[in-house]
Design a binder for these strands. Structure first.
Ligand SMILES: [Mn+2]
Ligand SMILES: [Mn+2]
Ligand SMILES: [Mn+2]
Ligand SMILES: [Mn+2]
Lengths: 220, 220
DNA sequence: ATATATTTTTAGATTTATCTAAAATTTAGA
DNA sequence: TCTAAATTTTAGATAAATCTAAAAATATAT
């Protein structure tokens, strides 16, 4: 089904909220993500329900149905593949790719996205470590934990970020932290909760719990 | 200036008409290209005039001013670079690229298009032989004539197509004719005006004047 | 030159996505 | 449990891009 940019953005917002909480998306939360009024959201979710993309119950919230979920997954596939393209082929930084991918993800062409996938070598993860759905909507899951859950003296490999904000990504750049960085927990300070780590068997850095919560690592 | 898709499509239409005829674009002609009503066109050209992109005189037609011309040229740059990308990187055929480029050309990011340009090696021409404006809006012109103007026993190199329709491009595919094909005029039939050519020093083919009018060649 | 045809503009309506303000419903606190 | 706060929906308005039908201007043909 051909949808407008707006409709697609609503589907993505509802998908994200469902992913985060597992519960139906509330009108207010959708409005928050899309920076619009609750009244507009009510109008639009009714329309999406009409079109058979979501299940909507007055005052109860909105959830994607099968078709809505498929469409949202396709959008995420497109978004993340474009991010890989921007980063690997066009040499963008990881803090720059999201905004442009927000536009590119709405381009309509199944062949385009499948050929892009092939061109990029069927990548499994995007520049932020998020999994890329394949042509059939299937993800490759990965065992990962927040860096804040890694214990003292244990080692881990950075595989993703939870936050995607520019400021967080720039902060990581300044710390020399990136996807595939090796990390060892040297100390966790009892008093101020700062975590001291060694990065790539090299520099030592102190990071806040906020940063550690937003970094995903694999045990190594 | 940030423009809507619709506004950008009007600018392109006006640009094309000016390019074709040299005269200001008529309301009806714009409506024809954009498949819309004359009344809508009047509304929109007034709005574009308000925004300082076109000069519009009631009943006299519309022409791009400096700013409108710059914006239209940027759109053409984006369109043609995306066509090159689709063809060279993603292996699309030359009859498939236009429709997708019509969508991609509206993505807003100066860095995106300049990096794409670099990635593609600063191509001078698109898959149909049309020149690609550089970052400053400058084209590389090329001396070319329609194949129909090539004389008997003369040789030429195919450098572009005038028509961009799918059916014409597919017809050329069937004849094995493509950009960079070498052509020799073997005979021009007096009775039915069919032109007999040799392609790549190899096969002989008879083509109609209609086809010959729509193929650009360089004398060799 | 005058009538006719064509083109273009205007007037008024429609659709889509948005808004604000007020009403209805649900949730949470005392 | 009752009341107050928060959330959500409804009602009505607005802005952008479109439409149709009618009026106005221009072009064409006898
Ligand atoms: Mn992103
Ligand atoms: Mn991402
Ligand atoms: Mn094209
Ligand atoms: Mn082209």
């Amino acid at each position: 089904m051909k949808l407008t940019f707006t409709e697609e953005n609503y589907l993505k917002a509802i998908y994200k909220l469902l992913e985060q909480s597992g519960k139906p998306a509330s009108t207010n939360d959708i409005a928050g993500i899309l920076q619009t009024s609750a009244a507009s959201v009510t109008d639009m979710v009714k329309k999406l329900a009409e079109k058979g993309l979501v299940d909507y119950e007055k005052y109860k919230g909105t959830r994607l149905n099968e078709e809505g979920k498929n469409h949202a997954t396709l959008l995420i596939r497109k978004h993340r593949l474009w991010e890989v393209f921007l980063m690997h082929s066009l040499k963008f930084r990881w803090d720059e790719v999201h905004d442009i991918a927000e536009q590119l993800e709405h381009v309509q062409s199944e062949k385009l996205i499948d050929e892009l996938d092939r061109f990029l070598g069927f990548p499994k993860y995007d520049p932020h470590g998020d999994p890329i759905p394949d042509k059939n909507g299937r993800y490759t899951f990965r065992h990962q934990i927040p860096l804040s859950q890694l214990e003292k003296n244990k080692k881990g490999l950075v595989v993703g970020v939870k936050e995607h904000s520019r400021s967080f990504l720039n902060h990581l750049d300044n710390l020399n932290l990136k996807i595939s960085s090796r990390i060892e927990i040297l100390d966790i300070n009892e008093y101020d909760d700062l975590i001291e780590i060694r990065i790539d068997d090299n520099q030592r850095e102190k990071i806040s719990r906020k940063v550690a919560d937003n970094l995903f690592v694999q045990n190594t």
